[in-house]
């Protein structure tokens, strides 16, 4: 009798222990699930934020495959835009107003370039480098770049109207467009990486843009 009672008591203790453990595990799983949900949400928000630094598909690729230094050779159209005599303007404006004016200009140009399926790769001082044809293939990258340049001219005209209302000086730009082969990918050191392109045509596009001053035009295109 004592043996049976002891066995039953042990059984009850064991069952109680298992029930408690089961509840604890269940609670833990629920907490981990919630933490996972939160992490996923954070990741999605992070992804949205990173879309400002690189094209959407590049971010997706990094998420799927991890950061790698892999790059690919591809044909792209480069649009290089630079403000004319901006150094002179900057010397006569307070820094806050200068940044405000420049940010407004970049915002407008970025919008127009995106509308024409381009991607602003980087801002270099008062200049910008835009790419057409990467990371998504685009059989009409050169007409897109040319149409983007024309739309940028119209957008600058409108923006200058707004600047005039606020008493700011007028902006003028030079745009150089060139087409050719580059190596495109996520490039840089472990501390600083960026999605960009490397190749002679980048320099050529920059030189073409410089020639706009010599020829007295705002847009200059190579024989693409």
């Amino acid at each position: 009798m004592a043996y049976v009672l002891t066995s039953m008591a042990l059984l009850i203790v064991l069952a109680s222990f298992l029930v408690v453990r089961w509840y604890a595990c269940k609670r833990k799983i629920k907490q981990l699930g919630m933490a996972l949900d939160t992490s996923l949400q954070d990741l999605e928000n992070l992804q949205l934020a990173f879309n400002r630094f690189a094209p959407h598909s590049v971010i997706e690729d990094i998420i799927a495959k991890g950061l790698s230094t892999s790059a690919e050779r591809c044909d792209v159209t480069i649009l290089f835009a630079d403000l004319v005599n901006f150094t002179g303007i900057s010397e006569h404006l307070p820094p806050e107003q200068l940044v405000q004016m420049l940010n407004g200009y970049f915002r407008e140009m970025n919008r127009v370039i995106k509308e024409h399926r381009g991607h602003v790769s980087k801002f270099i001082g008062d200049g910008l480098l835009a790419l057409f044809g990467v990371p998504e293939p685009n059989p009409w990258q050169t007409p897109d770049a040319v149409n983007a340049a024309l739309a940028m001219r119209r957008a600058l005209h409108t923006y200058n109207g707004k600047l005039a209302e606020q008493g700011f000086p007028q902006l003028q730009f030079g745009i150089g467009i060139h087409y050719g082969q580059v190596v495109a990918g996520v490039i840089g050191s472990q501390d600083l990486l960026e999605y960009t392109v490397i190749g002679d045509i980048v320099n050529t596009a920059s030189r073409i843009e410089t020639l706009t001053r010599k020829f007295g035009v705002d847009i200059l295109i190579s024989a693409i």
Partner: peptide, 8 residues
Amino acid sequence: MSESVVMP
């Protein structure tokens, strides 16, 4: 992706 995910 949860239901609250941002889909513009």
